[in-house]
């Protein structure tokens, strides 16, 4: 129900606390960062943008973790199949 996409913070404005310039694949826009007040973003951080507001910071660690989990899932499965293949092949 809500289109939101990851963007990189490329500039912050000391005179305007809750404003940031973000970039998505070369497209730039000024956005409002008030919703990140509890943990203000730094230049280079990735945030999720919805209707011109940063909704949350994106965790690189969690993203990597997720991809890794999925990759391993598949490998475990392949390994199991391989083992089954050896053991039960022709029965």
């Amino acid at each position: 129900m809500c289109l939101a996409i990851p963007a990189k913070i490329v500039e912050l404005f000391p005179e305007e606390q809750n404003r940031a310039l973000i970039e998505v694949a070369g497209v730039r826009r000024h956005i409002d960062t008030s919703l990140l007040a509890d943990d203000p973003p730094k230049t280079g951080d990735w945030v999720l943008i919805h209707v011109g507001f940063a909704m949350s910071k994106i965790s690189e660690e969690q993203a990597l973790d997720q991809i890794q989990t999925l990759t391993m899932l598949g490998e475990q499965e392949a390994a199991i199949q391989e083992v089954q293949g050896y053991g039960l092949g022709e029965t």
């Binding site: 996409i5 990851p6 998505v24 694949a25 993203a63 991809i67 999925l70 990759t71 899932l73 499965e77």
Partner: peptide, 19 residues
């Protein structure tokens, strides 16, 4: 596009749908 492309990657998609 970071945080987009890696979640559209055919290899990972294949693994998830296999699971």
């Amino acid at each position: 596009m970071k945080f987009v492309d890696e979640f559209r990657e055919p290899g990972v998609i294949g693994k998830a749908s296999g699971e």
